[in-house]
């Protein structure tokens, strides 16, 4: 596979380490109500759809960026890739 790195263009997927569901970026509020239950969901429950999925990939043998890659897990078509940092900042504002 080729991962379309937002800064570096198409890069060999072998340069990356795969983590999975990008919902891992949505860490629950540790002080919120039912924090433990929220963390249980966060840690143990992941989506694994056959179809379009937002995933975290780490450019380990590259620029060390974490990317959010939107990928169809059936066709492996990649619909987009963003710096996770930007995604997180965007979600915060």
């Amino acid at each position: 596979m080729l991962i379309p790195h937002p800064l570096l263009g198409a890069r060999d997927a072998q340069e990356f380490t795969y983590l999975g569901d990008a919902s891992l970026m949505d860490r629950p509020d540790p002080n919120g109500p039912e924090a433990e239950a929220a963390f249980c969901d966060y840690v143990f429950l992941r989506d694994n759809p056959a179809g379009v999925h937002r995933e975290l990939w780490f450019h380990e043998q590259g620029d060390r960026s974490w990317l959010v890659v939107t990928r169809d897990t059936v066709t492996h078509e990649i619909l987009g890739a963003e710096l996770a940092r930007d995604v997180k900042r965007g979600a915060q504002t």
């Binding site: 060999d12 340069e15 380990e60 043998q61 590259g62």
Partner: peptide, 10 residues
């Protein structure tokens, strides 16, 4: 300039 893999090395 780039960083990449070469013979299992970064």
């Amino acid at each position: 300039a780039t960083r990449t893999a070469m013979h299992h090395l970064t």
